[in-house]
Simulated assay, not measured.
Amino acid sequence: MHHISRSFSKAGWRVGFLSAPIGVPHLLGAGGDASERCASSRMGGSRDPDSAVWHFVPFAPLPWGVSPIFARRSYVALAWLSARPGIRRALRGAGLLQPDFACADHFLHEGLLKAADPRISAFRRADNAAGFPGALSDFSQREADFARRSDLTIVTNCNSAQELAEKGVPHTLLVENGLLLDRFRTQRPSPTEYASDGRPVIVFVGAADARLDHGAILRAVSARSHYLWTFIGPFEGEFARRLQGAGALLPGPIPHDRLAGYLQHARVGIVPFSQTNATNLIRQVSSLKVFEYAASGLPIVGTRGCLYPNDLPVPLAICDSEQQFIDAIDRFVVAGRPAPPSIDAFDRYDWPQRLRPLFDWLGPRLDG
């Protein structure tokens, strides 16, 4: 949603971005970015000088992690009711109360839309929330209810549209995932972690969630210790400790303006989703990281199950087993980096292009 917000701003909209709320665990210091997010909440929001997007982190005692009790309908409704005055006060101060358009990407965040009171509300379904560990048995129904209450439901792929149609949400707008291409147009310096190591870099960007095959990843890292396996994102807990113990590099979340350097100087980008667990989650994934790898000139090795573009201008190996996955990485490392495609070949994946169907949908409704 950060990328979409920036693209709306670039198109001339006055934009506010409200992140997922902080809760009591964040106030107690839980989470790698707790102090930064709590500071943003106390400030009442701030405007990014580069994108002109106003950013605010609200406080709401909502479920954080696996919290079944606090994810119940009645509790979530009370949590948003208590948070609404503070959110409306911040939006009013920024001149963003009652906007023309507001979008949330999770049904648990519908309270943000109600607080904003927009002319047009939208639900962007980027993931299957009901499929993640800790989801309650009614999550699927609650998600469909939210979609029906919204003026517009946005999906990122046809599999997601099909599932919503089966739940009684027949009308959706397809807006495929993309990337902010400007961040990949210039060559960035190599990270110091790479330069001081010297091994070929195998890189992953994303979260260590239930969709990844943790066991297969650990076995690959151990089997190919002559590669520098780099996992960029919020990796914490036992899985992170085991990766580090096997010699992997975990730099944590990397700011978007520095991410290109970590990708441009790697050798292979990987998409190591599980082929046995969370299959319904994965079949609805159209991964942003694939576009970022490709725009950096990386060959890509992924597991079968998620959706890959069929016209990427870089080599792509889709694998059916752990051994195929490792063998494909080996082949790409031995072959060396391919000649990078022209960055103009990625224009069709740029977020302003991807968002055209949404802008076209909004235009006549706002003009009227």
Rank of each mutant, 00 (worst) to 15 (best):
E143N: 12
D127W: 03
G131D: 13
K114Y: 06
A144G: 12
G111I: 00
T156I: 15
L152E: 09
I154Q: 05
L174A: 10
S74Q: 13
A77Y: 04
D100S: 05
C158Q: 13
L91T: 00
Q162W: 02
L136N: 15
A126Q: 14
W80K: 08
A77H: 13
R148Y: 02
A122L: 05
L81Y: 10
R73L: 14
N157K: 04
W80P: 06
L173V: 04
P170D: 05
Q98R: 14
F101A: 02
R73V: 08
H109W: 02
D127L: 06
Y75K: 09
R119S: 12
V169E: 02
A116T: 02
Q141K: 14
L113F: 01
V155I: 12
E143H: 13
R88P: 00
L96G: 00
L81Q: 15
H106L: 02
T172F: 04
G95C: 04
S74C: 05
L112R: 01
A129R: 09
K167S: 15
D117R: 15
A104C: 07
A104F: 02
L96Q: 00
A161E: 06
R89M: 00
D100M: 01
L97Q: 00
I120P: 06
R73I: 08
E163L: 14
L173P: 10
A165W: 05
G93L: 02
F139Q: 03
L108M: 01
A135R: 12
G93M: 04
D127K: 08
A116V: 06
A126H: 13
S137D: 15
Y75H: 15
S121I: 10
Q141W: 10
N157H: 07
P85M: 06
L164T: 07
G93Y: 01
E163C: 03
D127V: 05
L152R: 09
C103G: 01
D151C: 13
R92G: 07
G86T: 05
